[in-house]
Design a protein around this nucleic acid. Structure first.
Lengths: 150, 150
DNA sequence: TCCTTGGAGTTCCTTGAAGAGACTCAAAGA
DNA sequence: TCTTTGAGTCTCTTCAAGGAACTCCAAGGA
């Protein structure tokens, strides 16, 4: 085995990585999110090898993150985020937050997010789904769950 | 060039991937977070090749995500999360949320998070840092920022 | 003093994934 | 009929991941 398969580990991080952890995959998802939906467009935008792009797109379609939609009588397709994929974009939004804070330097963030609800340029914060208070690495205890390995 | 360098792209997702996007890296961060701090322990827990583990640990130390602490007169070291690293764990918490929802199956989540503030087993939700309302992929507009490429 | 042990890497070899670029295929248009 | 275009395949080379053996070094015995 060349690259270890993370999908069988009893860990939601490893399983999620099995879906979107390969090189380029998050950038492909980003492109599709911002409206770069076609093979040729994605390939040019990222400068990714065509072979690898084919593999990544197929992988994401297999895992229900993207769907393939024909847009012509000819064999032409667009890729769109499914519900799963749209929710997976949460991960990328948090990456953006971290990258903006720690890696953007003096130039500032390359991209801004304007929140529909309040109309302000803002960023995401992690909150407890139960009580609404901030919930970060230092605010939690980790417990074994029902799906823990034997 | 064998593996494309994402660090120079004008995109916080790509830059963040440059730090934690290589295979194994998120799992190394997870291990350090849960208290698996030593080379030998991490290697055995993950089953990662020693060579790759060395590379990943050095990379994370260089990028300020982990720090190396001696714990003995002998040349023995432990790895710990820095502030940067602790904040990077946010990304993994969101991965856990997605993996728990879409990939855990009937067995349920392998791991649970108990939130200190409310004492409940809970999960993270993304909120707008400005107004506190939910903030997901469909709740935002994307605008060019000051650090956008020319 | 020499031997052993254990942690933390290094080194070496093999396999296979990423990169680059050429090639294929099908339908539409000139 | 020939060309163009989108969406892939194919082929070849290079370098990263896996696996396993090896090194280094200090401490603790015998």
């Amino acid at each position: 085995m060349q690259r270890t398969d993370f999908g069988d580990m009893a860990c939601s991080i490893a399983r999620t990585l099995d879906v979107m952890g390969e090189p380029w995959t998050p950038l492909v998802i980003r492109d599709v999110y911002v409206g770069i939906n076609r093979f040729e467009q994605i390939q040019q935008d990222l400068g990714i090898s065509r072979k690898v792009l084919t593999e990544r797109l197929n992988h994401l379609v297999e895992h229900g993150v993207l769907e393939r939609r024909p847009y012509d009588n000819r064999p032409r397709y667009e890729y769109h985020l499914t519900e799963r994929g749209t929710e997976l974009f949460d991960v990328l939004m948090v990456m953006v937050g971290w990258g903006d804070k720690w890696l953007a330097g003096t130039a500032g963030p390359p991209v801004l997010y304007r929140h529909h609800a309040c109309g302000e340029v803002s960023s995401v914060d992690l909150r407890c789904a139960h009580c609404g208070e901030p919930m970060h690495a230092t605010d939690i205890d980790v417990l074994p769950g029902p799906g823990a390995a034997a």
